[in-house]
C-alpha cells in the first residue's frame, strides 16, 4: 500500500508539486489573486516552449543543450528583422523560426549521420548560435522601437480567465504536441527509438530521419517561444539567460520532474508543462514569502535532486530484482536439462 502510494506520488509528481506549492500560497501575502495567477501562467511562456523541445529530444534518447540558444535566436532575429529590416511581425517570426529550424536540422544531421553525441553537437551549436547573434546584434539589446501593437495583443488579459493570448498559443502548441506524441504513429515511433533503438530498427523505423525531424521541431518550437517572449517584452538580447537562472536549466529540471526518462523512451510533453507550472508557482510562492532568489534556486535544485535520487534508487532496486531472478532462472534451466 505504502509502495503503491509512493509510486503514484512519483508518477504524478509534477501535479503534486503544483498542488503543494499552490497550497503554500496561504503563507504568502495576496497570493490567491487573479492577477497573480495570470502572472504565474505568463511566466511559464518561454520555459514551456523550451520544455517541449527538450522533452521531445530526451524521449528520443538525446539531449538538446541548444534549446535556450535557439529561443534566443528566435527572439533576436524576430526583433532584428522587424526593427532593422522593417518587416512586419509575421514574416519576421517565420524567418526566425526557419533559421532555428535549419540549425535544428544541422543538429540532427550531426547526431544521426555524423554520429556525434547529441551532448557535444548541441553544445557546439549553442556557441555557434551565440556568436551569430552577437555579430548580428553587435552585442546590443534590440527593441521594437515603441511598436507595442502586437505586444499589447499578446499581453492582453482575457478577463475573467487568468490568461493572456500568448499563453493560449503556448497551450495550443503543448496540447497539439502532446496529442501527436501520444496518439500518432509518429509519436509512438519516437518513444520506440528512445526506448530501444534496436527494436525500432527491426521495426523498420528510420531513426535518422526521425532524429533530424525531432531536432528541427525542437529548434522551431524554441524559436517560436523566444519570438513570443521577445515581442511580449518588446526587446531581445543575445545573452539572455547567461546571468541568473538559465532557461535551459529550468527546461531540463521541468523535463526531469515531469517524469521523462533521461535514457529515453518515456516522458510526456504535458507533464513537462505541468512541471514548468509547478516550478513557476514555487518561484512565486518563495519570492512572496522570502523575497530572495537564492531560496528559489535552492528549492529548484532540491526538487530536482529528490526526483533524480528517487529514479536512481528505483532503478537500483529494479536491477537488483533482475539480478536475484537470474540465478533462479539458471537453476530452473539446469533442472530442466537434468530432467531431459
Amino acid at each position: 500500500m505504502k509502495t503503491k502510494l509512493l509510486k503514484s506520488l512519483n508518477q504524478y509528481r509534477a501535479y503534486v508539486l503544483v498542488v503543494v506549492m499552490f497550497a503554500c500560497g496561504v503563507f504568502g501575502k495576496n497570493f490567491y489573486t487573479a492577477y497573480n495567477i495570470k502572472a504565474i501562467l505568463d511566466s511559464t511562456l518561454l520555459y514551456a516552449f523550451l520544455g517541449v523541445g527538450f522533452t521531445l529530444c530526451m524521449v528520443a534518447g538525446h539531449m538538446d543543450l541548444s534549446v535556450a540558444a535557439m529561443a534566443n535566436l528566435g527572439a533576436v532575429l524576430t526583433m532584428g528583422f522587424h526593427t532593422f529590416s522593417g518587416m512586419s511581425w509575421g514574416p519576421a517570426m517565420i524567418l526566425a523560426i526557419l533559421a532555428a529550424t535549419l540549425a535544428g536540422v544541422i543538429n540532427g544531421v550531426m547526431i544521426s549521420k555524423a554520429k556525434i553525441h547529441s551532448f557535444i553537437a548541441t553544445l557546439g551549436m549553442q556557441f555557434v548560435l551565440k556568436g551569430v547573434m552577437y555579430i548580428y546584434s553587435k552585442g546590443a539589446e534590440i527593441s521594437d522601437k515603441g511598436d507595442f501593437g502586437f505586444a499589447d495583443i499578446l499581453n492582453k488579459w482575457l478577463k475573467p480567465l487568468p490568461i493572456t493570448p500568448k499563453i493560449l498559443i503556448m497551450l495550443v502548441i503543448v496540447i497539439v504536441v502532446a496529442v501527436l506524441m501520444r496518439n500518432t504513429r509518429f509519436g509512438r515511433n519516437i518513444y520506440m527509438i528512445g526506448g530501444n533503438a534496436e527494436t525500432a530498427w527491426l521495426a523498420g523505423i528510420k531513426s535518422s530521419r526521425y532524429t533530424i525531424l525531432i531536432f528541427a521541431f525542437s529548434g522551431a518550437c524554441c524559436a517560436l517561444g523566444g519570438a513570443l517572449f521577445a515581442i511580449a517584452q518588446s526587446s531581445a538580447l543575445p545573452n539572455m539567460g547567461e546571468k541568473g537562472i538559465s532557461p535551459l536549466l529550468v527546461a531540463l529540471a521541468a523535463t526531469i520532474i515531469g517524469g521523462t526518462d533521461t535514457n529515453g523512451g518515456r516522458g510526456s510533453v504535458w507533464n513537462t508543462f505541468v512541471a514548468v507550472l509547478g516550478l513557476m508557482v514555487m518561484s512565486f510562492v518563495l519570492s512572496n514569502i522570502f523575497g530572495k532568489f537564492e531560496v528559489q534556486i535552492l528549492a529548484n535544485g532540491l526538487i530536482l535532486a529528490i526526483c533524480v535520487f528517487y529514479e536512481t534508487i528505483t532503478a537500483y532496486y529494479n536491477n537488483k530484482k533482475i539480478g536475484i531472478r537470474q540465478p533462479l532462472l539458471e537453476q530452473r534451466q539446469k533442472e530442466l536439462e537434468s530432467a531431459q
Binding site: 492577477y35 502572472a39 546571468k243 541568473g244 537562472i245 532557461p247 518561484s283 519570492s287
Partner: peptide, 14 residues
C-alpha cells in the same frame, strides 16, 4: 532577480 530579466518580470508582477 539575480540579473535575470524573466525573474525581474515575475518580481514586477509580484
Amino acid at each position: 532577480p539575480n540579473w535575470d530579466v524573466n525573474l525581474q518580470n515575475q518580481q514586477i508582477d509580484q
